[in-house]
Design a binder for these strands. Structure first.
Length: 357
DNA sequence: CTCCAGGTCC
DNA sequence: GGACCTGGAG
């Protein structure tokens, strides 16, 4: 087996082809950690502006730990997978409280941090501390499965184990950090999921998938999550300059973000204003109702298809005290436009609000 | 429109 | 093993 050929080629390819990205010019574990969390399941182009903002507003782990979690969620707005933002904040406090403000300097200890799993621990340990631990992310799965012709399902525990063993054997003792960067960058730029650039590939002559016409077929991934359909009727309740909002709770999507009171229906075609218990209750306040029935927002998550309609209810400003009392009793809050702007909201709500302008 | 990216937590 | 988000590519 030409095992040293592979890392050698990658280490040669990398300096000539790598992108100049801000987190690559530092060994500061805080900055590296920040970039890794932001880049999980996220493309560089989408994550980059968020990274810049976070570094600017939270230059040190102390700044992040001291910030209110609402501010962190607001800054994360639009990036998705909001548990990353909650874990990010929790992890910063962990580093300050349990580790005296210094990130742990090895793979084992890094794993104890909230939101830091095997991939991220390996990335930080190698990039910041030169520890020889192999990263295993989607890029690495793809490059290894193609080059070595490994066709085990990468979503199975067995597949993950096999790939990790292979990755651990391949990583060189000399420049483990550079090698980890190289193989991921190679997957991102050269050995891409679709239309891999095999014509000008430095590994072409020894690549299993290229020789066997398997480039498109690898890696093998079986899992596919089934998508459920949901139907929301959102109630935009206005009273003078105030709106009624709700902080989303646990065990559902958008945890910790802010949206409007809603009634969920069994199917999109079942959405009916008159069947909303919320709408019925609100009649007591004699609202002016604006319901554009035909306008349905469709919002797609990886595992849910959400159809939502919005009804706008305007209540006379004099009834604010009554409305507030009602909102309190339902677990809702009252806020003005500026306060709403400062809260993290799902993109569906952001889209709706933008349409109202 | 469908498919896809891809790491952690519970 | 399923839940979690958004946006870009085709």
């Amino acid at each position: 087996m030409t095992f040293s050929h592979f890392p050698k080629k990658l280490l040669h390819w990398y300096p000539q082809n790598k992108r100049d990205l801000p987190w690559r010019n530092t060994q500061n574990p805080y900055i590296i950690w920040l970039s890794e969390i932001i880049l999980q399941q996220t493309r560089v182009a989408q994550g980059l502006p968020y990274f810049e903002e976070f570094v600017k507003h939270y230059p040190t782990v102390h700044d992040l730990a001291n910030a209110p979690v609402e501010d962190v969620l607001r800054r994360w707005q639009g990036l998705g997978y909001y548990s990353r933002a909650r874990n990010l904040h929790h992890c910063a406090q962990q580093v300050v409280e349990e580790f005296g403000g210094n990130f742990p300097d090895n793979y084992r200890s890094l794993l104890k941090l909230k939101g830091v799993g095997q991939y991220t621990a390996a990335a930080i340990a190698s990039f910041a501390f030169k520890e020889k631990v192999a990263v295993l992310d989607g890029n690495v799965f793809r490059v290894l499965s193609r080059y070595f012709g490994l066709d085990t399902d990468i979503s199975s525990p067995k597949g993950k184990r096999q790939f990790q063993e292979l990755a651990d054997e391949l990583i060189p003792a000399q420049q483990p950090d550079e090698y980890n960067q190289a193989i991921m960058e190679f997957g991102a730029l050269q050995c891409t999921p679709k239309k891999a650039n095999c014509d000008q590939c430095p590994l072409q002559d020894s690549c299993y998938a290229y020789a066997h016409g398997q480039v498109e077929a690898l890696p093998v991934k079986i899992k596919k999550t089934k998508v459920t359909t949901r139907a929301f009727l959102y109630h935009e309740i206005n009273c003078g300059p105030h709106k009624i909002v709700k902080t989303r709770g646990p065990k559902d999507i958008w945890q910790g973000l802010t949206d409007f009171p809603l009634v969920e229906f069994s199917a999109p075609e079942k959405i009916e204003l008159e069947h909303s218990t919320l709408f019925q209750e609100l009649q007591a306040f004699k609202p002016i109702v604006d319901y554009k029935n035909e306008k349905t927002y469709k919002h797609i998550l990886s595992h849910q298809k959400i159809f939502s309609n919005f009804v706008s209810l305007t209540i006379a400003a004099e009834k604010l005290d009554e409305v507030k009392k009602w909102a309190d009793s339902k677990g809702y809050h009252c806020c003005d436009a500026a306060q709403l702007e400062a809260l993290g909201k799902p993109q569906l709500i952001v889209r709706y609000l933008n349409d109202q302008k």
